[in-house]
């Protein structure tokens, strides 16, 4: 893939939540493009649509209208299994709440995407990923034995273990103190330098500064 390829392209995307009595327009026809290797921050007040946008980019949700091209492939018409496969192979998620499985060790948590990818020798890959985020000596710790920053690093290892093209992060530093937050951002910078495209939702101006480009949302539209 050449360096300027459009890995993400949203064209006139809307998302309407139909709760029966009320219809909520979370996205009102947004268009945006993210090129390969970019580091983009999505900002905006709560309810502005940035998280909805991230969920659509992550194939966790589908848009009501418009087109979403991921790697020039239209995702709108994909079925559930195909979307699961894309999430597994092309995308890596990092959440505000880390979302680690509490009864599993760090290694086992990182192995999860490999498990669903059907990879066989998972432990080695999992350990390598954990080493790359600086957790060589925390391999067999459970989440409750790790600090917030360490937990988030396990989550990042989990996101990169399947060598995705894109990392989608939903307020990755929201639950961390600023020092841990900046450590996480340094890891993101390194991953970005390795060529991984990063799209991150954040409230924090300091954190957003790590991104090359900031896209601001307001009332379901891009400002």
């Amino acid at each position: 893939m050449n360096n300027n390829a459009e890995v993400i392209k949203l064209v006139d995307v809307s998302k309407i939540y139909d709760t029966g009595s009320v219809k909520i327009e979370a996205l009102r026809g947004i268009s945006l493009t993210v090129k390969q290797g970019e580091f983009v921050a999505l900002m905006g007040p709560s309810g502005s649509g940035k998280s909805t946008c991230l969920n659509i980019l992550g194939c966790l949700d589908q848009c009501t209208s418009g087109t979403y091209l991921l790697d020039l492939i239209e995702t709108n018409r994909m079925n559930d299994d195909q979307l699961a496969k894309i999430r597994n192979k092309k995308l890596g998620f990092v959440f505000q709440m880390f979302n680690l499985l509490p009864r599993m060790t760090a290694v086992k948590n990182v192995e999860l995407p490999l498990l669903y990818a059907g990879v066989r020798h998972r432990q080695h890959l999992s350990e390598t990923a954990l080493a790359s985020v600086g957790l060589v000596n925390r391999l067999h710790h459970r989440p409750n034995e790790l600090s917030g920053g360490e937990q988030q690093r396990v989550a990042i290892a989990r996101a990169i273990v399947n060598q995705p093209e894109i990392i989608l992060a939903d307020e990755p530093t929201g639950n961390l103190d600023s020092r841990a937050g900046h450590e996480i951002m340094k890891i993101f910078e390194i991953l970005n330098q390795q060529g991984i495209t990063i799209v991150m939702v954040t409230h924090d101006q300091d954190i957003a500064r790590y991104a090359h480009r900031i896209i601001r949302f307001k009332d379901g539209r891009i400002e």
Binding site: L60, D80, A84, K85, R87, N88, N99, P113, Y116, A117
Partner: peptide
């Protein structure tokens, strides 16, 4: 939450 996470990292409904 566990189910959500598993789905996010690539579990299909069948899984």
């Amino acid at each position: 939450r566990e189910i959500g996470l598993r789905r996010a990292v690539g579990a299909t409904r069948g899984d």
